[in-house]
Amino acid sequence: MEDSRPVKIQRSDSALKIAMPGDVTYLAHIREFIADLALKVGFTEEDVAKIEMSVDEACTNVVEHAYSTGKKWHVQNRNPEIRLAIQADENQLVIEINDHGQHFDFSAYQPAEPQTRAQDMHTGGYGIAIMRKFMDEVGFHSSAATGNTLRLVKYLKKT
């Protein structure tokens, strides 16, 4: 029988997987979960805030852009969903954010630094620039088979 719960959580040896509707009402839940996890893993308050904002910007982009109506999605006729796969060890936190919305050419999008955008009083377009500034690695893969996957990595600095 198909699992009809809006939020699904799967634990395996390698990752914690969470799937939830691609809807703005779930963004706060994602942030709260990620911030709590990052704190428990041992990140500083400042790094927790950076990770929280990066994940929020990524998920916001999924809702706002990947699942925008009237566009061709990787998988049509399926409800919008955000799927997170999270791996944490003593060295780093890896968060993969997957969707089946419209294709995006990530490498071709090179926005100016957030500080430059702010200085120019831009009202939007900060999301990817923020992720690149706050995370240690930002990767992206898009294919018809797997949809869009954004990979965010933050290194756990030893003190």
């Binding site: 929280e52 929020d56 910007e57 916001t60 831009h122 939007g124 900060y126």
Partner: peptide, 8 residues
Amino acid sequence: YIGSAGLG
């Protein structure tokens, strides 16, 4: 919390 949408 404030995200880039709010800052914008």
